[in-house]
């Protein structure tokens, strides 16, 4: 495999992880999607700087962190929740955690299957395009508070389940 092909493959392989990393820093999915595209472009432009044999992910996270900072400065359209220092702290932890993101993703799918069908459907509605607490509340004719509470419980159950799966496979530190 030539270097370019290898690079493209690494870049594509890293997409999920990069998105998760960026979303951790951005919170808002739309912002994270914009930054992900910019990060892809920057990584490609800087591909010559990448040293084969070194960690692609570590390099990509570093670039992504800088891109997030740049984006925040550039698009000051809303109040920033996390300041730069806290962002750096979260980025450090996120870099560690991203090593397990694929395992956690697989565990998540098993955990989703264990959910009662109504809860699975709630997750589907929430995360499908256009999904929001308000939209679900309207569709199911329930209050926004009830939907928020339900989503909180479901997320909690999913996290518990993922942790259990990880622990049973010896993948949890």
């Amino acid at each position: 495999m030539d270097r370019t092909t290898e690079f493209v493959q690494q870049l594509t392989d890293a997409q999920r992880r990069l998105y998760a990393f960026i979303l951790s820093l951005m919170v808002h999915p739309d912002d994270a999607e914009d930054v992900l595209q910019e990060v892809n472009l920057v990584l490609w432009q800087k591909s010559g700087e990448f040293q084969p044999g070194t960690s692609f992910d570590a390099w990509a996270y570093k670039v992504a962190h800088l891109q997030v900072l740049a984006y925040r400065k550039r698009v000051q359209r809303q109040r920033v929740l996390l300041d730069d220092a806290l962002l750096a702290r979260i980025a450090d932890v996120a870099r560690d955690e991203m090593a397990s993101v694929e395992d956690r993703r697989r565990a998540l799918w098993q955990c989703l299957q264990k959910l009662p069908s109504q809860q699975r459907e709630m997750i589907r509605l929430r995360y499908s395009p256009g999904g929001s607490v308000q939209a679900i509340a309207d569709a199911l004719k329930r209050s926004v508070g009830a939907i928020s509470q339900a989503l909180y419980r479901i997320r909690g159950q999913l996290l518990e389940c993922i942790e259990r799966q990880q622990a049973s496979e010896g993948k949890l530190s």
Binding site: Y19, A20, L23, S24, V27, I90, A94, V101, R104
Partner: peptide, 16 residues
């Protein structure tokens, strides 16, 4: 927070 965001990101990604 990071683990919740990973969960959120995965669900967001997969359901898009």
């Amino acid at each position: 927070y990071v683990r919740v965001m990973m969960l959120h990101a995965t669900l967001q990604w997969e359901h898009s």
